[in-house]
């Protein structure tokens, strides 16, 4: 029987997840709506003084992005766990971390990317100057995959639990702190007009680092929580 090559297994799994997500198109909007909603809440809380909102703007966008990605993490393995296909993936001959990477990539395309698309609208809402919007987009495009990668470890650890949601945020949010700090700081320095190469390169390093390490940790965690 012809064994699947690793790349075709990867792309098959990716296609499968994207098709599944596409079937439930209406759900794709949820992370975006949540992102905009949370961002809109802050000015209501802080007051409409433009200077104050602008000072808080980058932080608000990034905290909202963190919460949106945290909220959507649960769907990463939940449906596969319930119908047992997660166990089938674990039994495949291919290294599980690569298959897990496919699932994380699919999850990011479905939930992380929309945040990136809707970010300019939020920048306007929080009157972040237009000159900083490209940096905001760049930090989001680099940062949201890191959130999905780190989040996948937490999801893998709590997939077996019925009420894993709260614990998931307790496990994952502390690990999100570096991404939050450098993401916000990049946008803040961009607003002032100083070059942000340092922050962007650190975010890039975090992305590459978690791209390599997170799938291994997630695969090990899945093996444990499914055992």
């Amino acid at each position: 029987m012809s064994t699947l090559s690793l790349t075709s297994a990867f792309s098959l799994l990716l296609k499968r997840d994207l098709v599944l997500a596409y079937r439930r198109r209406s759900e794709l909007i949820n992370p975006m709506l949540f992102f905009v909603l949370v961002t809109a809440m802050f000015p209501l809380g802080i007051g409409n003084d433009p200077k104050l909102i602008e000072a808080v703007g980058p932080g608000v966008v990034w905290v909202a992005a963190l919460l949106a990605s945290l909220l959507s993490l649960d769907s990463m393995f939940r449906s596969d766990f319930e119908d047992g296909s997660l166990e089938q993936f674990m039994l495949s001959a291919h290294p599980v971390s690569i298959l897990v990477l496919a699932k994380i990539l699919a999850h990011w395309l479905v939930t992380g990317l929309p945040l990136f698309i809707v970010a300019p609208l939020l920048a306007v809402l929080l009157n972040i100057p237009a000159s900083a919007i490209p940096t905001l987009m760049l930090t989001l495009i680099l940062g949201t995959p890191v959130l999905s990668l780190i989040g996948s470890v937490g999801v893998a650890l709590t997939v077996g639990l019925r009420r894993g949601g709260v614990i998931l945020s307790l496990l994952v949010l502390p690990l999100y702190v570096p991404v939050l700090i450098f993401g916000t700081d990049a946008v803040k320095t961009a607003i002032i007009g100083i070059p942000t190469t340092a922050q962007i390169s650190i975010l890039g390093a975090m992305l590459v680092g978690s791209l390599v390490l997170a799938p291994m940790a997630t695969a090990a965690s899945l093996r444990i929580s499914l055992s």
Partner: peptide, 19 residues
């Protein structure tokens, strides 16, 4: 929290080790 959430203590201990 993770350790107390997982009933089977063997699985819990190994999950906590990963964390």
């Amino acid at each position: 929290a993770l350790h107390s959430a997982i009933e089977d203590k063997r699985v819990a201990a190994r999950a906590v080790s990963i964390l």
